[in-house]
């Protein structure tokens, strides 16, 4: 099956009010082309689940600057002043989640788990309103799974079946988000034929990936 699509098909997949997971850490490993399409399309009232909101002109930043996002679930917003401004002005709802907890909540959402138990955030504002459980004498917070309508990811290379390989530190949240969304769209720099990637080098199995769009290296 060839999962590679063009821009025309891509555009038909986005709708207002969608919950979108977006890979990347400070813009590295973020799907720059897909972000530019969302900005071009102007879909709005999005809920965004992402590591951080990068800077105004990297990663998911342009979507925030363009006011297309109404809710953000992220671990860090400090490098994009526009996110903080919108939060303080009450224009955008921001839920800050410890980065490791965010990763585990996404993984839980994609792994069929009802939540995870973590010591992270105990004794801080993060524990407010959450159930605490005692396991073997140690206290943990119950953190609930996260899922999305769409995951927009970035990989280095894909085969036509959607098997993915990432480079260096550009992997970050991409593999776990591939588990946790109803529709998984991946932007890649290069597409190869099925069989060209060795099974041992595949980092995300293609069965998780619905659509692949090839756009070369975007600097």
């Amino acid at each position: 099956m060839n999962k590679v699509i063009g821009k025309d098909e891509l555009i038909s997949l986005f709708e207002d009010k969608a919950t979108i997971m977006m890979g990347g850490f400070m813009g590295v490993g973020a799907p720059k082309f897909l972000v530019s399409i969302l900005v071009e399309q102007g879909v709005k009232d999005l809920t965004l689940i992402t590591s951080d909101t990068a800077t105004p002109d990297t990663g998911v930043g342009p979507l925030i600057v363009n006011r297309q996002v109404k809710q953000i679930i992220a671990s860090h917003i400090g490098t994009n002043p526009e996110t903080g401004r919108q939060m303080i002005a009450g224009e955008t709802v921001v839920e800050l989640v410890p980065q490791g907890t965010l990763a585990e909540r996404i993984r839980a959402g994609g792994a069929g788990l009802g939540g995870i138990l973590t010591p992270t955030g105990l004794g801080t504002v993060v524990e407010e309103g959450k159930e605490k459980l005692l396991v073997n004498g140690k206290e943990y917070l119950l953190e609930l799974p996260l899922r999305a309508d769409i995951a927009l990811l970035k990989a280095f290379k894909a085969d036509k079946a959607g098997n993915l390989i990432y480079r260096q530190s550009a992997r970050n949240f991409n593999p776990i988000m591939a588990l946790a969304a109803d529709l998984v769209i991946v932007e890649v720099e290069e597409v190869v034929e099925v069989g060209e990637l060795k099974p041992d080098e595949v980092m995300t199995p293609g069965i998780l990936v619905d659509k692949v769009i090839c756009c070369g290296r975007i600097s």
Binding site: D52, A74, S75, H76, I77, G78, T79, G84, M87, L96, P98, Q99, G100, T101, T118, P119, T120, G121, L122, T124, V126
Partner: peptide
């Protein structure tokens, strides 16, 4: 200033 905790809460917990 509300930059977010990033990975700091996990680091101090673990």
């Amino acid at each position: 200033m509300v930059p977010g905790m990033g990975g700091a809460m996990d680091l101090v917990a673990g």
